[in-house]
């Protein structure tokens, strides 16, 4: 019980720390914008205002750090992590080994395939909607991009939602299949097929060789066409946008 309280307390502390760290930055940004509206040459963030903003947060951060150190020293941890996962899909995979598939099981498997294909198709369809985006003539690049993002993100999110929904339906079917498998007696007693991706044989070697050859050819072609120089060019200069500086 005491462990649970401590873990919950830790969660709260870290939640508060994260919220404070975000709020400090947001406040500095808001104040900075106000200052900048009066004088465009002023900076939004300065070393001083960041230090000043962080000062009230420091006691909470130190407290959280102390609490964490105490927990680490006393080896307090969530035991749940050591327990095995109870996952319907994994259970189904395990149960299906050595059991005959009844028509009911086969029907569920067919359903699962349909849901998966449907989910992927819907997702791809939503992504394809992105191609309907049309640029304004003579539009400014950054504004165009934001318009593109505004257009694209809802479609992408919609596609992902479709994927989630179909996965949910698939999960229901998996549960039904698991139940049906439980009723089936185990018939096979031979060696089990491992729960692993077991690519083997000459086919795999051939694929590996092909990929290796292709990769080496691409690298060589890239060196020759100046791609390597492009990479160097990008890497040796600080890309302020990439690192989020602005």
């Amino acid at each position: 019980m005491r462990k649970k309280v401590y873990l919950a307390f830790q969660a709260c502390l870290y939640g508060i720390c994260a919220a404070l760290l975000c709020l400090v930055v947001l406040r500095i940004y808001r104040d900075g914008l106000q200052r900048q509206s009066e004088n465009v040459l002023l900076w939004i963030f300065t070393r001083e205002n960041v230090a000043e903003g962080l000062r009230p947060v420091l006691p909470v951060l130190y407290g959280t750090l102390g609490s964490t150190l105490a927990g680490l020293l006393l080896n307090v941890r969530d035991d749940g992590m050591d327990r095995e996962v109870r996952d319907t899909e994994i259970q189904r995979d395990l149960l299906s080994r050595g059991r005959e598939a009844t028509p009911e099981i086969l029907r569920e498997r067919k359903l699962q395939r349909i849901f998966r294909i449907l989910g992927i198709c819907l997702f791809l369809l939503c992504l394809a909607m992105v191609t309907l985006f049309r640029l304004r003539e003579g539009g400014e690049a950054e504004a165009d991009f934001l318009r593109f993002l505004n257009w694209m993100l809802p479609w992408t999110a919609g596609g992902f939602l479709c994927l989630l929904i179909t996965e949910g339906l698939r999960a229901g079917s998996i549960s039904r299949e698991t139940e049906a498998l439980r009723k089936q007696p185990r018939v096979s007693s031979g060696p089990e097929k491992p729960m692993a991706e077991t690519g083997k044989g000459r086919g795999l070697v051939l694929v590996r060789l092909l990929i290796l050859l292709l990769a080496l050819c691409l690298i060589l072609a890239g060196i020759l066409n100046g791609g390597m120089r492009d990479t160097l060019m990008k890497a040796i200069l600080i890309c302020t946008e990439c690192v989020g500086l602005g």
């Binding site: 590996r208 990929i211 290796l212 292709l214 990769a215 080496l216 050819c217 691409l218 690298i219 060589l220 072609a221 890239g222 060196i223 066409n225 100046g226 791609g227 390597m228 492009d230 990479t231 990008k234 890497a235 890309c239 990439c242």
Partner: peptide, 27 residues
């Protein structure tokens, strides 16, 4: 970062180098 940069420049230069490197790492 290199992959995005290479794709950015794909209008005038194919991104072979980075694709090759990624394939090699992946393999």
């Amino acid at each position: 970062g290199a992959l995005q940069n290479a794709l950015n420049a794909s209008g005038h230069r194919a991104p072979w180098y980075v694709l090759g490197i990624l394939m090699l790492f992946g393999l």
